[in-house]
Design a protein around this nucleic acid. Sequence first.
DNA 1: AAGTCGTGGGG
DNA 2: TCCCCAAGACT
Length: 414
Amino acid sequence: MPAPAQTSRAPARPNASDLLVWYDRHRRVLPWRALPDERPDPYRVWLSEVMLQQTTIAAVKPYFSKFLDLFPDVAALAAAPEERVMSAWAGLGYYSRARNLHACAKAVAAAGGTFPDTEEGLRKLPGIGAYTAGAIAAIAFDRPAAAVDGNVERVMTRLFAIETPLPAARPEIRALTLDLVPHDRPGDFAQAVMDLGATICTPKRPACALCPWMTPCRARAEGLQEAFPRKIKKDKGVLRKGAAFVVVRAGDEAILLRTRPPEGLLGAMAEPPTSAWTPDYDPAKGLLDAPLDARWKRLPGIVKHVFTHFPLELTVFSARVAAGTAAPAGLRFTARAGLEAEPLPGVMKKVLAHALDVKAMPAAASKAETPADLATPHEREPPPRRAPIPKPPRSRPSELARIVKKPPKATRKT
DNA sequence: AAGTCGTGGGG
DNA sequence: TCCCCAAGACT
């Protein structure tokens, strides 16, 4: 008697072949991805993988294109001044990635200009962690490495109905993934799992009927596909408040800026001077933190921004100072034409746009009620007021604001 | 090892 | 509106 065949209730183990057949038909076309008959370029693979860390494809596309223009290869990137790299990255977020990218380029250039072709070698470079090392090793060098990102975590936790919540389940996921990697097409496999996660095995309403792994999927068998991965939700953080000070100098219309410390939040990025950001900040006392003496105006409205671990509200004060005014120590005036070369993060572009908009449209600003109370609050304590706070004049983009506007988003969908 | 680190889009 | 999440790394 032959050994008993597995019953129809015991789903077959998922295999790479089924996924690769699907991939050959449905693979996405992406700017950094080699076509089936092309050899991947390690520089482009690396650059795209770093940009894609916690970042959507749509957001990355214009930056990837810009970086290839500005820095066509590792040597060019390594030779570039730090500030140029930070400016090119401005708006993409997680700015330590840009600093590490630059450091990594220098290390690679110093070592002869070629990337390590193993996971272990790649892992030693700045900005390359477990995922990125595996991805580059597999995609650029066809090494049988696991590249476990958020997509793969979702696919694997569903496929095997892993009850352990993230991130504790990572070692288990990694082992299961590595076990599935085929030795003939590891690079395609890595990209195939990610494509599957991005287009079929989506966080909400996954298209199981179209999935090449529907049959072996344990979560699907129970109808629980949307319940995986198990995850512990993290809190949003406490609201912090502060003031930002936008100084415009008459004559050249230059703006007062400074550079933030090289590490930490928005490290090495530029900003108009601000107060400290604290939960109990009092905007009525905002001018205590002003960078210089001037006729400050407190602008109506508030700039809101949400970081990963806390929301922020900035009250904006603005002032015009006389032509020829010198910048205080540690600060600089940057002319309007030089503004785009400044590494201004998104939140600070919001602040400048807000200040320049309001300034450019006194009619709109004065339409907000009680402008007198909003201006120069340090001169007297405004009386208690029952009237509703005027909404920020959600201004249409002015000529001035356009200068500090972020690059256009990608419009093409794939 | 849990906290830190941006930003934008979609449901 | 709010919440989730997106090709995570570093400390």
